[in-house]
Structure formats: structure tokens, C-alpha cells
Design a protein around this nucleic acid. Structure first.
Lengths: 350, 350
DNA sequence: ACAAGGCCTGGGAGCGCTTTCAATCGAGGA
DNA sequence: TCCTCGATTGAAAGCGCTCCCAGGCCTTGT
């Protein structure tokens, strides 16, 4: 009925509520005997401190919020495209939170809307989260960052586009990853390598293109405009752009798509015109999405440490909330990516 | 600094905090003039009521929790398989919550562990959520249901395995879906239809097999044991079981896999032995996962209303929390599935 | 032996809100 | 005209916990 309160435990253990509070928070200055007695009473009663009361009275709320863009999310829903990135973010953070006794709150933010300011301010005022994990495009949203700073709420930007100076971040090096993948294709012997750019709203799209361009230029390879094509991260766009490239008089011997969905589109396009992958044309993707392993041939791709990023972010925030202070030096964690070599890339036909 | 409280608003509007409270909660018995004045003051101050204080003082917490199995989640993470089901669940619920001013909390539960009872009890005591959305296998966990009832926390079981009498549920008819898909194959002319069963931990696995068996028996078609094979919902298991079936002296002309990952495995197996889909062998899946559209041929499959189920669940819980009472009659929402006809099924070769 | 600490413990004051209940103001009815 | 009832308002009492601070005790030092 009425749930067990700290008073019940105090009464049963024959101590004051303050002592119970100390024990529950693992504070020092409690005799082991007392601690045992309180723990026993709490155990028998099945007591668990009320979160609301804790956060109202104290300075912590034991809540970590994740800001996610509403529009992208709804897109995913309607198109039934997998929200793979988002789930990985959540898994990493959820596990860390659970172990630490924190709770993960998923919040949709309408970054494009006219109400962002009010929406985010209300959220912070109502929730008073101990920390916020910002996923793109929140990671780069000026209004969000400003409000977070104003509310003195710690946050970590996951995979942000813009560089330092904007607060703590945990990210990976998209430029280097794209460069390495391009280098890999070049080392296989490819000279004519096409590229499909991703949805421009994502900062990663440009970074990946830059990495590709860097690698090509470093080796002095030509990059005609027709080989760098604009996609939007969908299978369909990959299919279309690949077809367009295949129709070129001088077509590439390899295509690097900046995500797996588009790479799968390339595979389909190549098969459609009767060519073989990787025999005639190699294809590389980016993301290591689940479907990259279910395609034939399996996709060579880049594995992003998505879950690890959010996991690190959550750990940072929880630690900060526990110690009560900001970290000594600016947080800037660069997590390693990995090239996954599978069957879709091979030396060019000679 | 110190955030805006109800006192500040009351002072600015020249009313008592009680009146502010009434306005913020849309309670009746406030003159329009007062309401306006309070709203104006709140707007200027950027006031937003503190959630913790609200739930501590009142009877609602404005929090809806989603219980998710920890083991399955970690599986998904490690295997990098898409947590597609989970993300769809979340999207549906998150959108509803946001519109209603509620917040979604994701909680991992270790259903297999020895601590379930304590873990869940602690969660409920600490959070006092206004409602809980149970995803499989939580939907059928006796301990969880018992504790929820004891704590008088409203809940909705999403896609539970066991039937009524265990509390409100929102689900789809897996048996009918599997039966209809089987009927579809039969109507194309197939007589020898193989089936790959899913991971037995999921109740849906049995339901789908039952649907398949019903359809086969209704038409008097033979179902040799070798045609009903145990998989575990992974691509690999689909590949292996399909290969085994193809090696049979009398092999099926169609394979119905009880999820898309396994169906993709079938596609791979068929291609591997040099046969064509659907020319030689038809393949049907179940889930309408993102990858079902990226395969070649695209997969004929069943679309589950996952996001819709959680969306309905969230709506029910929020409504209940608002009205303060249990619904008049037991909740049992059956949502419609849909057969998605794509290219992987065709009449058998003659 | 006496004072100066350190270790435990409890008392009391809120945190920002909802709730209960009493008080006030008018309008309608006898 | 006086009384009753409903619509409005506010005052006060917590919700269950943390935080600040004082008090008691037992160590040390000299």
C-alpha cells in the first residue's frame, strides 16, 4: 500500500533517518554495526529510496537525458528505415546507467521548430537531469548548448560536427576513416574510385567526403565531378547514383558509399546492369550496419564505435555528477574506428 | 542560478501559489482573468514546474517506463544485430509521451537473474512510474506482473505470448499472420513448404509455427519433420537450416522463415547451391525489417505494427494516469498486421 | 589529568509542489 | 431582505528525502 519510507527503516533499525540516509548513500562516518543493522532493516522491508524525494531535496536527480532529433526519428519511423544509430546510442548509455543506479530518459527535440528554446528550457527546468547526452544534430545546436550552459547542466556531445570550444565531446574521426577506406581501395589497385556523399544535414557527410578527397589527392588520382555524387543515406539514392556512375563513358572500378544503405543500393545497381561485385566493381560502405553482413557479397565497411561513444559519454556524466565538479581539463575523447574487410572489395579487373 | 519556482510566478502574478498550481494543471475554477495573468507571468519568467516536486507531492510522476530484457539487449549490442524491434517500440511510445508532457524511461531488466524480484521492486519504489510498457519477455514474466499489481502500477503488455487474464495487452495475431502467409504460398501453387522456427524464448516463435501448421493441415498438405527446422532468429541459423532443407531428397519448393534475418539466410543458402529465388524456390520472411527491402530479390514478409502497439500502450497508460482510474473493461487491443508482397515469392517451378 | 580534536549520531529546516479544507464573494430564491 | 449554494481563492500541512549544524563520545597529545 503506502510504500516503505525511510522512516520505516529508521524505526525498524532503531536509528534516525539521517543514519539511514547515510547508509543508503554510502557516506562515511557510520559504524559498521549500524550500517549492518540499517541494511538488514532495509532488506527486510524491501526499501528503496524515492527518486523524486531525493532529487527534490538533494542536488542530484539520478537521471541522464538523451536528446534526439524529432524530425529524424519520425523519418525513421515512417520510412521504416532502421534507427540503428539511435539504438546503439541507447544501448551503450543504458547499460552504464543501470550499473550506476542512474536512469536514462529519451527526449525528442524538434531542432527545426520555432520553439526549440522554450522546449529545451522547459525540459531542463522540469527534469533537472544530472547530465545530457547530445546526439547529432543536437550536438551542434547553438541554442541547446547555450541553454545547457545557462542551466549549468553537464553535457557531452556525441559525434559532433563542429570542433572544440563548444564543450565536451566524444567522437570518432570520420575524415581519417574515409581516408583509410579510400587508401585501402587504392592499395588494391583501384585508380578510378567513385564516391557517394550522404545527407548534407549530417556533419559526417562532409567529413567522409573530405577524407575521400584527401586520399585521392594525396595519391594524385583524378576526381572528376561525375564521380562524386550526392546521395541522402537511403538505399534508393545509392541505387540511383550508382546507376548514373555506371552509365558514364569512363566509369569507376570502385565505389565508396558513405553509408551502408547506399552501398547496398550500389550492389543492387551493379547487379542490375549485369556486372559482378567485386569482380567488375568493388563497393565499400560505412557504418557496419546489420544489413552489411546480410548482403551478397558481404560489405567491406567502417565500424563506428557508436555504443562505445554513448557509453563513454554516460560514464563521464555520471562521474561528474558524483564528484559534483567539472572535470579538470576539457573532455575530448576520440574513439577508434575499424575497417571491416569483407567480400565486396577486391583488385580491379585488368 | 536558482531556477524559477512557483513562488516567483505567484509573486509576479499577484496570486497565491495554489492558483498558479491550478492554472498549470488546467484545473477548473479559475477566472479567465487570473488564468491569463498567471500564464503571462509564467511565460515571462520561463517557468516550468519541477517534475520531482510534482511527483513527490502529488499522485502522478509523469513518467512512463519501458521494461526491456537486459540479456537480449546485450545480445543485440554484441552481435551488432539491429535492435529493430526495440527502436520501433520506443519511437511509438516516445512520440505519444512527448505530446502528452510525459517522459519515457528505458529500463533494462535481467529477467533470468536471481534478482528480478528485488530489481523490479526497487525500480517501482524508486520511480513510481505512472505506467509501465512491458516488452517481451517482460510481458509474460510472472514476477514482474505480480510486483506491478502489488504496487498498483498500471501496465500494458505488448505482444505477450500468453493469453488474457494476465492484465491489459496490446498485440497482434502471430498465428493468423503465419497462417495467411502460408496460405499465400499455397495459393501460389506450392505444396511442399518448409518452415524455420525462431528462438524458442520468444512466444511468437511458437505462434508462427502454429499458424504455419494450421494452414498446412487445413489444406491437407504433408509436413514431414525435416521441413520444420529450429532456427534462432539469426541470419546464420537461416542459412544453415535452409541448406539442410535443400540437401533433402525431396526438398520444399518454398521456405517460410519466421523472421526476416533467417529469410535472408535462406536467400543466401539458395544462391550458394546455385538455385534461383523465386524461380526455383520461394522465400517468405516475417517482420518487414529494413533489410527485407535491401535484399535481392526483395523479401515477401509480414509487417508487424510494432510502433503502433507501443503507441497505443502509451496512450492507454497516459489516459489512465490522467483519469486516475482503471479502464472500465479489460484492455485487449488486437492490431492488424499486413502481408507485404514482394519479389521473393512466386509460383513453384513445374 | 585536561584540552583539543576526530568520529558518530540526531535534530531541524527546507526542496517545490499538491492536497485538504476553510474562507470569501456574489447571485438566486423564499 | 436574509439565507443558501456554488464558484473562487488562499492558508497550512505535508510528500520523503538531503543538507547544515550541534552535541555526545572517545581518542590523542602534553
Amino acid at each position: 500500500m503506502g510504500s516503505v519510507t525511510i522512516y520505516d527503516v529508521a524505526a525498524k533499525a532503531g536509528v534516525s533517518i539521517k543514519t539511514v540516509s547515510r547508509v543508503m548513500n554510502n557516506e562515511p562516518n557510520v559504524r559498521p554495526v549500524m550500517r549492518e543493522r540499517v541494511l538488514a532493516a532495509a532488506g527486510e522491508l524491501g526499501y528503496s529510496p524515492n527518486l523524486s524525494a531525493r532529487s527534490l531535496a538533494g542536488s542530484r536527480s539520478f537521471v541522464i537525458a538523451v536528446f534526439v532529433d524529432a524530425a529524424l526519428t519520425i523519418d525513421h519511423w515512417q520510412s521504416e528505415r532502421g534507427a540503428d544509430y539511435l539504438s546503439r546510442i541507447q544501448l551503450g548509455a543504458t547499460l552504464v546507467c543501470r550499473d550506476a543506479g542512474y536512469h536514462l530518459l529519451i527526449e525528442l527535440i524538434d531542432h527545426e521548430g520555432p520553439q526549440v528554446r522554450q522546449e529545451v528550457a522547459a525540459l531542463l527546468a522540469a527534469l533537472k537531469p544530472d547530465g545530457v547526452i547530445l546526439t547529432p544534430p543536437s550536438s551542434d545546436n547553438a541554442v541547446v548548448l547555450e541553454l545547457l550552459d545557462k542551466a549549468r547542466t553537464p553535457y557531452v556531445r556525441v559525434g559532433p560536427e563542429r570542433a572544440e570550444g563548444l564543450g565536451p565531446r566524444v567522437h570518432m574521426d570520420d575524415v581519417a576513416a574515409a581516408r583509410e577506406m579510400t587508401d585501402h581501395l587504392i592499395s588494391l589497385g583501384h585508380q578510378r574510385i567513385g564516391f557517394i556523399v550522404g545527407e548534407p544535414r549530417y556533419g559526417a557527410s562532409q567529413a567522409r567526403r573530405d577524407g575521400y578527397l584527401e586520399a585521392m589527392r594525396a595519391k594524385g588520382l583524378p576526381v572528376p565531378e561525375a564521380w562524386v555524387r550526392q546521395g541522402d543515406f537511403t538505399f534508393q539514392s545509392g541505387l540511383e547514383q550508382a546507376k548514373a556512375m555506371l552509365a558514364l563513358p569512363e566509369r569507376p572500378t570502385a565505389i565508396f558509399a558513405s553509408n551502408d544503405d547506399m552501398a547496398l543500393g550500389c550492389l543492387a545497381a551493379i547487379a542490375e546492369v549485369g556486372l559482378m561485385t567485386p569482380g567488375d566493381i568493388s563497393v565499400a560502405g560505412f557504418d557496419d550496419s546489420p544489413s552489411s553482413r546480410f548482403s551478397r557479397p558481404q560489405l567491406t565497411t567502417v565500424r563506428q564505435p557508436v555504443a562505445e561513444m554513448s557509453s563513454v559519454a554516460a560514464k563521464l556524466l555520471i562521474e561528474q555528477s558524483r564528484s559534483g565538479g567539472a572535470p579538470e581539463r576539457p573532455v575530448d575523447e576520440l574513439l577508434p574506428f575499424a575497417l571491416i574487410h569483407r567480400a565486396s572489395t577486391a583488385p580491379p579487373p585488368r
